[in-house]
Amino acid sequence: MSICTYARSVTLTLPLAFTACAGQPGSDSEPDSVGSSTADTLDSTTTGEPTGTSEPTGTGEPACVEDDLMPMPFAGPGYDPANGGLQEPLQDKYVASTTFLVLRGEKAEEFLQTVGAMIPVLMANQGLVGFSTATSAKCGTARTLTVWRDQMAMMNFVSSDEHVAGMTRAQEFSTTGTVTSWEVTRAELPLTWETAMAKATAATPSY
């Protein structure tokens, strides 16, 4: 899969995944008809906390098992799985970042539009190694995993108009969110989602 094809596939797949989040934890809308059993797993306050395990974890992350997590393949300007993985110039160390959001279902469409505007900016950043997104319809969650050549490249994207537009609306789009970054070695790439999820769980929620 080419990088351009991958970027398009992210843009096309995210709407399908996040549409499925409507009526799930983090949504103010009613659960749909796909299962009365779904209603049994949702808290009546629709805060993103499933019943039976409604107490949040120590980090504030809702206690919902994302066993339906749907990740996109990790790829980008610096990582092409069809051409040997990491691309030149190779480095000893890189910077990784991951985000975690519990979405408000009624805001999914606006969220998608905001994310869609970020993708071209992200892919145009030559300091980007690669990225992946993952969603859970069951838990109404959205995750990102990015790897950068250095901190400056990451901050160039973070400070872009498109990303700032999303950050300023984070609490409008989601009930809670966590972002964290750390240094990784070449041998650790590509990172697994288990690693990213563990890092997010260990981090202090942003709100």
Rank of each mutant, 00 (worst) to 15 (best):
A82Q: 07
P56M: 01
E61T: 15
G52W: 07
G76P: 02
T11F: 14
G78W: 07
W182N: 03
R104A: 09
T41D: 13
G76V: 02
A108S: 13
Y94S: 15
P50R: 00
T114S: 13
K93R: 13
P56I: 02
S2D: 12
K93W: 11
L191G: 00
T185E: 09
P73R: 05
M154L: 06
E66D: 15
M154E: 06
A198D: 12
S36P: 11
T41V: 12
P50I: 02
E49V: 14
T144N: 12
S160M: 05
N125Y: 04
T41E: 13
P120C: 03
A39G: 09
G177I: 06
A198H: 08
D150E: 14
L189M: 03
N83P: 06
T98D: 06
Q87F: 03
G177S: 09
R8D: 12
F100M: 09
T53F: 00
N83H: 11
D32M: 05
V147G: 00
S97K: 13
T13Q: 01
T13P: 01
E88A: 07
P25E: 13
L103V: 14
N125Q: 07
T146R: 01
W193D: 02
T180P: 00
S160I: 04
A124R: 03
S181H: 03
C21V: 09
T144I: 12
M1I: 11
K93Q: 14
G76H: 03
V102R: 14
L103W: 10
R8E: 12
T168M: 15
